[in-house]
Structure formats: C-alpha cells, structure tokens
C-alpha cells in the first residue's frame, strides 16, 4: 500500500548574511492512512519547520525547501500555489500551538469555520454554518449553537482549541498536522484534547502528525514516534518499541530528564550536559556528539545515517553494547 504522505530527504534552509543555514537537514519519513505519528524534539530541533514545509506555510521569503514531499503520490515541493491552496484546509489541515492567538479575533467561531468550508465545497452560507455547528458538537463543545455565534476571546483555552480542531476537521482532512496542540493548555484540558485527537481516526478517518516536546504526550497518543535533534531525525520506531528499547543517547537523555510521577523518586534527574548547537555552528559529524557520553572517532567526520528496519536510529552504538550504555545514563 502506498503511504499517504512520503517525505524524502527534506531540507529547509535559510538565506542569511552568513550564507545558507540548514534548519532541517535530510529528514525522511512516511505516514500511512489513519496513522498517528508523533514527532518529538526540543525547541530548534526543526520539528515545526518540517511540518510547515508540507503545506509551504513557513512564510519566510528567505526559506529554501528542497527534497521531496509526496502526498498521495503528488509532489508538493515546487507545486503550483493554486494546488497547494486547495490542499490546505482541505485534504491536509493544520492546528497550531496557541489557541489564544490562532483565531481571528474579529470574526465569530462559526463564521471562521464556515469560511473554510465554503473555500473547499460549494455549500451555501447557511449549510456551511449548519455544518460548523455540527462540527463544534462533534469535538465536544458544549452548546455548539451558542459557541458558533461567539468570538474566540469569549471561549476558554480548551474550548478554543476544540474550535480550532473543529475548523481543521471541517473538510474531512486525510492528514491533520498538529503543532504542539496541547502545550498551551492545562493538564486536565490537555487530557481532553489528546483523547479527542486519538478519536479522530475513527470519527474522521484522519491520519495525524503530532508535534510535541512532551514524551508523555506521544507515548499516550502516537502509533509511531520520530525523535528530532538539531534538524535531523535521530530515532524512529513504533511507540511501544521506542519506549521499551530506546536506541539513541539523545532519547535516553530526554527520558532521563523527565521527572516521573510514580516509581522511586530519583535524588537527581538525568541531564544532558550543555545545549543544542546553534544551527550555524553544528559539528561536522553527529550533532549530538558534543553532549554525548559515548562519542567515538567514527561519530566525528559525518553524521551517522539512520540504520535499522522497523526501529531506526542514527547512532554507531552497536546492538550488543546498547543496554549497558543506556543503563549507564538512565540509572545514574
């Protein structure tokens, strides 16, 4: 079966006075219909740019996107603006991090949803408005009729994010791109929104790319995970496999940095020393090497490639050495 979306060797660079800076560097992945893919990484890892590049929404005249992004077999890079526009909000929809600022403050929720419906269908104004109310109901907004007549700032953060999701779902997208959809929300509201996202594949047949910095969010939501560091995917696997047997030292560091709610309280958290490299001062070899406790000569000349079949990692640590090395990090 062909994947829904296939990205091969995607690079996003920015023209600056110091030359071209690569923010996303050789990212490849694919996603099947109805699959939830989680992309995890810290700020500056390139995870948001990767997703914005899919719909050409980076919005910076100095950005240069190369590689291949195929959606249902159609190449999107270099595609005509008109074709991309029809995909945006239609077959591929997007939701953003901050529901507080993601909606235009001067239009009602209902008007903003029906606007999108009317771009992509030939429903009448009235029918689009009715569909908007249906959608608000479907995402669990209480009193959807009244909510449709309200302005964004009259709703709470969680309600707004539901409205944003309703809008994204309005044209039954095959793929939903969610950029940190719960980061700005409280935990109890985050739990509601994650439950909603998990249900999308049943209710709307949508595949989801979920971007987050929170390993807990992917663990509970995604089928498959890709971990990004400094513009590259360093590890990708099925969610269960990745958390059961993480391969990359950066993934270990991330896991060790998270304070746990149960189990023994560790006196100190595992930390990753230092900071991610600035994009224009990335080492020649593995970008994680300056912070890694297991550096070897072969890490330094060029970044290691993703190896493996189902569970891929860009690291030279061999299978038989892995468990010992990981225990060194996570048990410390």
């Amino acid at each position: 079966m062909n994947p829904l979306l296939e990205i091969v060797d995607l690079a996003v660079s920015f023209r600056t006075s110091n030359g071209l800076i690569r923010a996303v560097d050789g990212v490849s992945f694919s996603i099947a219909e109805r699959e939830i893919l989680g992309i995890v990484g810290e700020s500056g890892s390139g995870k948001s740019l990767t997703v914005l590049a899919i719909l050409d929404l980076i919005g910076d005249p100095n950005a240069v996107v190369t590689g291949s992004i195929r959606f249902r077999g159609i190449e999107l890079i270099g595609q005509k603006p008109e074709t991309l526009r029809r995909l945006r909000g239609g077959a591929i929809a997007m939701i953003f991090q901050d529901p507080m600022t993601a909606l235009t403050p001067v239009f009602t929720i209902g008007a903003q949803i029906s606007e999108q419906i009317r771009i992509h269908t030939d429903l009448s104004r009235h029918a689009a408005q009715a569909r908007a109310v249906e959608l608000l109901d479907a995402v669990g907004l209480p009193d959807p009729h009244r909510a449709a007549a309200r302005y964004p700032q009259e709703l709470s953060g969680g309600q707004r994010q539901r409205a944003v999701i309703a809008m994204a779902l309005s044209c039954n997208p095959a793929l939903l791109l969610a950029d940190e959809p719960t980061t700005a929300l409280d935990v109890t509201v985050q739990a509601q929104i994650l439950e909603l996202i998990r249900k999308l594949r049943d209710d709307f047949n949508s595949a989801v790319i979920l971007i987050t910095h929170n390993l807990g969010v992917v663990a509970e939501t995604a089928d498959r995970v890709a971990v990004m560091y400094s513009g590259r995917i360093v590890e990708t696997a099925d969610t269960g496999a990745l958390f059961a047997d993480p391969h990359h030292p950066y993934t270990w560091g991330l896991l060790g940095s998270m304070p746990a709610l149960d189990g023994i309280r560790r006196p100190r958290l595992t930390t990753i020393p230092g900071l991610p490299p600035a994009l224009d001062r990335r080492p020649q070899g593995c970008a994680f090497s300056p912070r890694c406790g297991f550096v070897r000569p072969e890490c330094l000349p060029a970044p290691p490639c993703l190896t493996g079949t189902m569970h891929q990692a860009a690291c030279v640590i061999a299978d038989h050495e892995r468990a010992a090395a990981r225990n060194q990090v996570l048990a410390a």
Binding site: L57, R85, L87, L103, V164
Partner: peptide, 14 residues
Amino acid sequence: QEDFIRTARAKGLS
C-alpha cells in the same frame, strides 16, 4: 505576523 494569519493561510485562503 500574527498567528491567526497563519491559520487563515492554512485554511486555504488565497
């Protein structure tokens, strides 16, 4: 530069 402009673009508006 506002976020909601990006949302508007993502909706498929010209």
